[in-house]
């Protein structure tokens, strides 16, 4: 495992911790999209299904369990927790799941590395992850005033994707036959979706001000 990959995983872990911190200690999920969180839960459930069939490393197994557990508990908090759920911006978070899930599944049936259950689900989870952030970005745009933890959560998620791209570049040059177009292109698309957010995030850091997206 190279340094970019490790840094990417740890950034991903940090993003989840920031979100759990916000929900658990402040008891608020204001500005957080339940749709995005549910899509992530589907992403991890389909991608990490091989948890019980193939063993890769203790690190791999532990991380998978953490991402599965955290994504489902975040969904539970927003839907069921008696205090947290009151802060959910339901009227603003209007993205339709099937507009995203269905096309991703069809695409996975057409484009995959191999026509096996594992590979089709793997491709599906990659396509879905690429666009799962969209409801969250739409919600940010609508909320305009974004609190620090929400801003940091989205920033860390974007940073995690950027580090994965560096990881693939590194692996391409150091490992023989390391070519994975499906992973790379969907990962690149996913990272590009953050470009706009990154721009305003750094702008607000430079001006030492609050993160605000233009209308």
């Amino acid at each position: 495992m190279n340094i970019f990959r490790l840094a990417g995983d740890l950034t991903h872990l940090a993003s989840v911790l920031v979100l759990l911190l916000k929900i658990h200690t402040i008891k608020s999920c204001a500005g957080i999209s339940l749709k995005t969180q549910e899509l992530y839960a589907i992403v991890f459930a389909t991608r990490y299904l091989d948890l019980f069939t193939t063993y890769i490393s203790l690190y791999n197994t532990l991380m998978k369990l953490i991402f599965l557990g955290s994504s489902f508990s975040i969904v539970w908090y927003i839907r069921k927790h008696k205090i947290v759920r009151r802060s959910y911006d339901k009227d603003q978070d209007t993205f339709r799941h099937y507009f995203i899930v269905l096309p991703c599944f069809v695409l996975a049936l057409i484009i995959h590395e191999k026509f096996t259950v594992r590979e089709v689900l793997w491709a599906f989870s990659l396509y879905l992850e690429a666009v799962a952030i969209l409801p969250q970005l739409v919600l940010l745009q609508r909320t305009r005033n974004i609190d620090n933890l929400t801003g940091q959560y989205v920033f860390l998620l974007g940073a995690y994707r950027a580090l994965y791209i560096l990881n693939w570049i590194y692996r391409y040059f150091t490992e023989p036959h390391f070519v994975h177009w499906i992973t790379w292109i969907s990962g690149l698309v996913q990272t590009l979706l953050y470009a706009d957010f990154f721009y305003y995030y750094f702008q607000s850091m430079k001006n030492n001000g609050k993160l605000q997206l233009p209308a």
Binding site: M1, R5, D9, H12, D50, T54, I56, S57, N60, M63, K64, F67, W122, Y164, N167, R171, E175, P176, H177, F178, H180, T183
Partner: peptide
């Protein structure tokens, strides 16, 4: 091993 490589990622 070549087919497995990408699946070590998260």
């Amino acid at each position: 091993a070549i087919e497995e490589d990408i699946h070590d990622e998260l």
